[in-house]
């Protein structure tokens, strides 16, 4: 009995050989120790029934535990050797993988989608409208006076007497209010046209993104909450926001929203003209005349609206110096911003 336990101890020493064993040695060890016919441990286990009950219990427990240890160790070493076998000798794994052409969405599309997605979380749906509009939709319903300078042919592209390429996406506000009863909460992306020749910061065509909320009880507080929430989601959670007076025919009170300059984070730099602020959007409470022009009761309903330029936002956020790059479609430019594709 004592011999038996001693030989088990001796056998346990041999566990150490396993992690170093190569494929052949491992098979030899397996046969020598666990072999069904002449394995050392197998023999010990076979001899157990001949022992006295007390000794059988003690030796049997120890022998079976050792057997499990050998099995586990051999198993682990076998897996290790199999994994190593997958290494192909002489292959340089730093060589490039098989490539595929990449494609991507235009940066302006991505910015528009990103902004619309943020406003979707704030309860806004997404609508669009025609690019050729009448003066009524583009100007008069929006409370532009008949003699407003924007109506001059110097500023807008005209297609007919009172048909022009929309100068902003605001006509879609009118179309929406004419079609749906409040509550209205919409964002309106789209292309707009101004009679400005191309230069680094102007284009005759550019993207605009407008928003409109009209319902009972909407106030200046809701307006500020909504647009501040947008700015903090779009830029960063601790972005400073400020609202200051402005003027648009279709909002009253009107406001300009500035966010902390994203280049200098507010300390002042050439990009923000040392003010520490970046102008992001024009906005305000919907002018009651606009609601009245759409047949909406301006005593009962109030609302807010805003408009911003995704090109300009993209330019300031990504450091793009010239708006023409967006239209030239050089694939090297498009490729730089393809990484954001979902």
């Amino acid at each position: 009995m004592r011999d038996l336990l001693a030989s088990l101890d001796g056998l346990r020493e041999r566990l150490r050989e396993i992690p170093q064993a190569d494929e052949r040695r491992l098979q030899e060890l397996k046969t020598e120790i666990l072999g069904r016919k002449a394995g050392v441990l197998t023999d010990i286990l076979k001899a157990l029934p001949g022992l006295a009950p007390e000794a059988r219990k003690a030796a049997g427990g120890a022998a079976n535990a050792l057997k499990r240890e050998f099995e586990t160790a051999i198993d682990a070493r076998e897996r290790e050797l199999a994994h190593a076998a997958r290494r192909i000798p002489g292959v340089d794994l730093t060589m490039p993988g098989r490539p595929q052409w990449r494609g991507g969405l235009h940066l302006v599309t991505q910015v528009v989608d990103e902004i619309c997605e943020i406003f979707r979380e704030l309860g806004f749906t997404r609508v669009v409208g025609p690019e050729a509009e009448t003066e009524r939709y583009n100007f008069f319903a929006l409370n532009f006076p008949r003699d407003h300078p924007a109506l001059d042919a110097q500023d807008s592209f005209y297609l007919g007497d009172d048909v022009l390429l929309r100068t902003h996406t605001s006509p879609v506000q009118i179309r929406t209010l004419e079609t749906y009863r409040p509550p209205v909460r919409v964002v309106i992306p789209g292309q707009v046209y101004r009679r400005d020749p191309f230069d680094p910061s102007h284009s005759p065509v550019f993207e605009q993104l407008e928003g409109l909320a009209v319902d009972e009880g909407l106030s200046f507080v809701d307006f500020k909450a909504t647009l501040s929430a947008f700015a903090r989601k779009f830029f960063s959670a601790d972005t400073q926001v400020r609202f200051r007076p402005s003027f648009f025919p279709f909002t009253e009170p009107s406001a300009e929203m500035d966010v902390q300059c994203q280049i200098c984070m507010g300390s002042g730099c050439p990009t923000c003209k040392q003010t520490g602020w970046m102008e992001i959007l024009g906005s305000g409470m919907v002018h009651p005349a606009v609601l009245e022009n759409c047949g909406v009761d301006s005593e009962r309903y109030t609302g807010f609206a805003w408009g911003m330029g995704p090109h300009r936002i993209a330019m300031s956020r990504h450091g793009i110096p010239d708006i023409r790059l967006f239209f030239e479609s050089d694939v090297r430019f498009l490729e730089q911003f393809a990484g954001l594709v979902r």
Binding site: G123, P183, V186, V221, V241
Partner: peptide, 13 residues
């Protein structure tokens, strides 16, 4: 003026 969130109704559009 505060910029606190107040309840709003979902868009009918």
């Amino acid at each position: 003026f505060p910029d606190e969130w107040r309840p709003f109704r979902p868009s009918a559009v």
